[in-house]
Amino acid sequence: MRLRLDLSYDGAGFRGWATQPGLRTVQETVEEAIGTVLRLGTRPALTCAGRTDAGVHARGQVAHVDLDDPVEPDQLARRLRRLLPPDVTVRAVTEAAPGFDARFAALERRYAYRLQDRPARLDPLARGHVVAWPKPLDVDAMNAAGLLLTGEHDFAAFCRRREGATTIRTLLELSTVRRPDDALLVTTVRADAFCHSMVRALMGALVAVGESRHEPTWARDVLLAGERDSRVKVMPAHGLVLEEVVYPDDAGLVARAEQARRRRDEPPARESEGSVDR
């Protein structure tokens, strides 16, 4: 039986999603809770839509777990909420549709990054998920740079490389708005998938442009150079939230998962050789 879990968590107390020996992670915390509730002999393995880094939050994380015996999803959700610590919660547990894969069936992931560049408007109660920035930022310039980065590209300049993994991604949106009520800057970042540190590096490029240290075209130049640039600051983790993961309707799950498993940097003849990190 495959179950879908919709999760939210405050990332401040976790060393990211993925299990790491001796460190507190979201994956290990939730897996242990499931194992305890269901009295399993071994901890079940969760697969998530996107592995968040240490300190990154999530409102809309999605994971799946495979169980040998059927369970009642709503009852499992209630019991997990009682057992889990207060910085992580299970919003829903449902039986997964045939072909559902939390990672490979996803069409896109949507993140939000929050900045406050006006110290007088900074809400101290929001300091855990809003980055205070000491210089004013030009939203129009940031958006001009964001437009130049959207589309399918090799984002090696904004990623930490992993052996055997491609850095080609399709960036669907990179746009910033200033909220009228509190002058908070909120950047929406949408892509079919992300590689390690990509969102926070993209934010570093936008901030550099927003401070008028570079023209918007500079961000595009960094992208085309294809290697990490020391002028691009990887922004703090606590301003980043995984807000939503989008999936196709049930009829499109299998086709989407098959498509997502193909490497985009290989010729078609080799596309069937297996799954890789996207």
Rank of each mutant, 00 (worst) to 15 (best):
M1N: 10
M1E: 14
R2S: 12
L3T: 10
L5A: 03
S8W: 04
Y9S: 09
A12T: 15
R15H: 13
R15I: 05
Q20S: 13
G22E: 14
R24S: 13
T25F: 01
V26R: 01
V30E: 08
A33G: 09
G35Q: 10
T36Y: 06
T36R: 12
T42L: 10
R43W: 05
A45Y: 09
L46F: 06
A54S: 15
A54H: 07
G55H: 01
H57A: 12
H57P: 02
G60P: 03
Q61A: 09
V62L: 04
D66I: 10
L67E: 14
L67K: 07
E72G: 01
R78N: 07
L84S: 09
L84T: 00
P85E: 11
P85D: 11
D87H: 10
R91D: 15
V93R: 04
E95R: 13
A96L: 05
P98L: 12
F100D: 05
R103E: 08
R103S: 11
F104S: 07
A105W: 00
A106Y: 03
R110F: 01
L115M: 10
L115S: 00
A126Y: 03
R127Q: 11
G128L: 09
V130H: 07
V130P: 01
W133Q: 06
P134H: 08
P136M: 10
P136L: 11
D138T: 01
D138N: 15
A141I: 01
A144Q: 15
L149F: 02
T150E: 15
G151A: 13
E152R: 14
F155W: 04
F155Y: 08
A157F: 08
A157M: 08
F158H: 07
G164M: 07
T167K: 03
T167P: 09
R169Q: 04
R169Y: 03
L171S: 00
L171Y: 01
L171T: 01
T176S: 08
R178L: 08
R179C: 02
P180A: 04
D182E: 12
V186R: 06
T188Y: 06
D192E: 15
D192A: 02
C195Q: 05
V199Q: 04
R200N: 13
A201Y: 03
M203P: 00
A205C: 12
A208Q: 06
A208L: 13
V209F: 00
E211H: 00
E211Y: 01
E211T: 02
A219M: 06
D221E: 14
D221R: 07
D221A: 14
L223S: 03
D229R: 02
D229H: 03
D229C: 06
K233Y: 09
V234P: 13
G239M: 02
L240F: 12
E243Q: 12
G252N: 11
R256F: 04
E258P: 01
Q259P: 03
A260M: 10
R262D: 12
R263C: 12
A269K: 07
A269M: 10
S272W: 08
E273P: 05
E273S: 08
S275M: 09
V276E: 15
D277F: 07
